[in-house]
Amino acid sequence: MNSLSLTLFDCVVLVTLLGLAWQLLATPDLFKAMVLFMSFGLVMALAWVRLAAPDVALAEAALGAGLTGPLFLSALHRLRGTRKGERRQQLDSIEHRGKIEKVTQRTSGRIIYLLLRILFAGLLLTLLVHLATILLHVEYENPGLGVFVAEQQEESGVISPVTAVLLNFRGYDTLLEIMVLFVAVVAVWSLATVRFSEKSGQVSPIQQGVVRILAPLMILVAVSLIWQGTHLAGGAFQGGAVLAAAGVLMMVSELPWLRLIPSLPVRLMLVFGPLVFLGLGVSCLADGRFLEYPGELAGFLILLIELACGLSIGLTLACLFVGGRPVDDLVDRGQLEEGS
């Protein structure tokens, strides 16, 4: 890395990052915080590019900024929609606040409260400085596992080192991580229901038209991202995120044919990727260890796993965006009334 030539750029990125983070955490306006959060994600993606991590940059742009932002926005929308008083969204803190206010009415209480805050800040600052000095003083940084990855690259069946680590050397981590995504969907479905068949009918025709053009393109991009993961930056997560973004766009635009009712096909799709990954891993037990792809088939198997997982991840993320088990009024109205 030609380290000194771009220092100004780095400084701008860093200062923007810290400033955005400070602003988004400090502002009392939730919507503003939301917008700042999305831009924070985008600047973060810039930092990843600068730090030679294109895979992470893609994932951050697609997942961190592209999907988390809408997640927050729809949550904010739901939070505001439920109650009239936007100001009273402090769920559990009202009581707590009251206590603090009661304490701070007296001068002695105010001083103690201030002292506590100073103590807390001082503690954190000391910790920060301590950790930073460790980072500064210990000059020697281990080269890490890069050497080993480079040595074994040939045997992994893929060209991109990050994909080799993700799906071959440390494929077990990735398997569990996909399970985390799956559990998140199960958890979200167990928590809330969303009425899907309600349509506002107020979507602008221009939006629908644009989405009709963009969605197929995005799906194309997603597939190519998954495919190019074997030799360039990209892979199942990035591709899946783009796929999910296409799904989110279509849902927001209320395209008529799109329904995400948790019937068997949808559940099958959700389970498909994890099950293929797990199944291939187990089938490797036939003549080897768990997840030990036979040499000549490794590349093909990894591509297969990436495709299957990419599809499932896309659907999973879209389901997370929906934010609950979609319920069709016509199909299980009875269940909804009985449930919460």
Partner: peptide, 21 residues
């Protein structure tokens, strides 16, 4: 190979229980 089974079996079980509800 028995060592991976305590992880693999419940994972598969969880997926299948979700599928056949």
């Amino acid at each position: 190979f028995w060592m991976v089974l305590p992880v693999v079996l419940p994972l598969a079980g969880g997926l299948l229980c979700f599928l056949w509800r």
